Simulated scan of single mutants.
Amino acid sequence: MGQPLIPGTAITVGIIGCGAISAQYLASFRRLPNVRLAAVADLDPSRAQAVADSCDGVRALAVDDLLDDPAVGLVLNLTIPAAHADIALRAIAAGKSVYGEKPLAASTKEAREVLDAAKAAGVAVGCAPDTVLGTGIQTARKAIDDGLIGTPIAATAVMATPGHERWHPNPDFYYQPGGGPLLDMGPYYVSALVTLLGPVVSVTGAASRTRKQRTIGSGPRTGETVPVQVDSHVAGTLTHAGGAISTLVMSFDAVRTKSPNLEIHGERGSLVVPDPNRFDGDVELFALGAADWEVLPVSAGYAGAGRGIGIADLASTPPGTEPRAGGELAFHVLDVMESLLEAARTGTATDVRSTVARPAPVPLTPARPEDGTDGLSRA
């Protein structure tokens, strides 16, 4: 069994999956006083041992041993998307809370099993991306909530890259079920859109794949090819419950774009929102009647945050309260993306069956203040 989550106390974390993304979490954990890393595990024991050797007091364990370890209160699931649900369910069965990399699972069916199991066990579920808790998205949200653009009307979200195989030494999972530009990068953009504009009620979409295989461009496997099993260019429209309509383009085929990552348009102004794959960045406002864009002062969000702030926020969340980077938000985001792919396959508009409340806003809060408190807002 694991530890209960008690707001105001440190949560002890065990990581399963010590791939490239784990380094970003490790860097954050060193700055978060209410998160303590106790153990790591990986199917490749040498990778787990390398992480343990770089962190004082951290043990390298086999996956089963980490899941059985009573000192571990929360499992950080950094496995490939196809394994997200399996590891989460095993951790929940061991009485532990779970925080996973996106997406929550490879399908909404698996994701619902995770959430139902967690509810029955009385443990918490959180999920990346927690970038929406940073000053970039939260400052934009405050601008919208404060009425600076009036009633939101529309949004655009664009991500274009020729593919992660150009830089990632083991890119196979990006082109397997649970991957692709929508399920890999889409969670950043859809989570931001839901945070800014509220839940999505219906979608339309189109999708394509231009190549049957990709060539690895770095690392020891340079020159190897991997098969493409998913659509590599996805476009769609998202109708939000509040009436705003978002246009989404996610591509592993296009080379580059000069479009802003996110733009939000209202009856009284437009916002340029920073990259949702980052925690910070300038929010720009062009108000109706203004002469030029104005950079808004940072006014909300965890300042100086990095990957893992969602775990710290979860650990500070009162029992029975959904975490800001919680499982219900991640489920809705996955449902939106799955519905978009279904709409692309059928050529018809598709209703999104789930809904979710907008997470509570984050007041401007240092991720780790100078006074020695945990720095996390419980407002």
Rank of each mutant, 00 (worst) to 15 (best):
R268H: 07
A52V: 00
C18Q: 04
R368F: 08
G326S: 04
L183V: 04
P199S: 07
P129K: 03
D145A: 15
L5E: 08
P363I: 08
A305I: 00
L296N: 01
A367P: 00
A287W: 04
S354Q: 06
K258Y: 01
P103N: 12
I15S: 13
P276L: 03
G219N: 11
I264Q: 04
D253H: 00
A120S: 14
G178D: 13
L32Q: 15
A85S: 13
V98D: 06
G223V: 05
R324H: 04
G372T: 06
L5N: 05
V63T: 12
T156N: 12
V356N: 07
A140M: 02
I16Y: 10
I153T: 14
A120P: 02
A20M: 05
V13W: 08
Y302F: 15
P363M: 12
G223T: 09
T348L: 09
L115W: 11
W293L: 11
I137A: 08
P363R: 14
V114N: 08
G217V: 06
L5V: 13
I137H: 03
C127E: 11
T237S: 13
G217Y: 09
V362Q: 12
F279N: 01
G372Y: 11
A312V: 03
E370C: 03
P187K: 13
V114W: 02
G266T: 00
G180L: 13
R166P: 03
K142G: 01
A111E: 03
A52M: 06
V158W: 01
V249G: 00
F279Q: 02
G347W: 11
L115E: 10
A88I: 09
A330Y: 05
G205T: 09
P369I: 06
V255Y: 07
K102T: 02
L271G: 02
T108F: 07
P187T: 12
S191P: 07
L89C: 14
R345F: 01
P369H: 10
R30G: 05
L5D: 09
A303N: 05
V190D: 12
G136I: 01
L334H: 10
V98P: 02
I80P: 10
P297R: 06
E224A: 08
L5K: 01
I80E: 11
P169E: 09
A343N: 09
R221S: 08
V255P: 01
R378V: 13
A360K: 13
A91S: 15
A105W: 08
P177L: 10
E338I: 04
S202R: 15
E342K: 14
L74H: 10
A27R: 15
A367D: 05
V40F: 13
M337S: 10
A48Y: 08
G347Y: 10
M250C: 12
G178P: 11
L334M: 13
D231Q: 10
A38D: 09
R214K: 15
A300E: 07
G180R: 14
I309P: 03
E165Y: 04
R345C: 00
D253Y: 01
Y99H: 15
K96D: 11
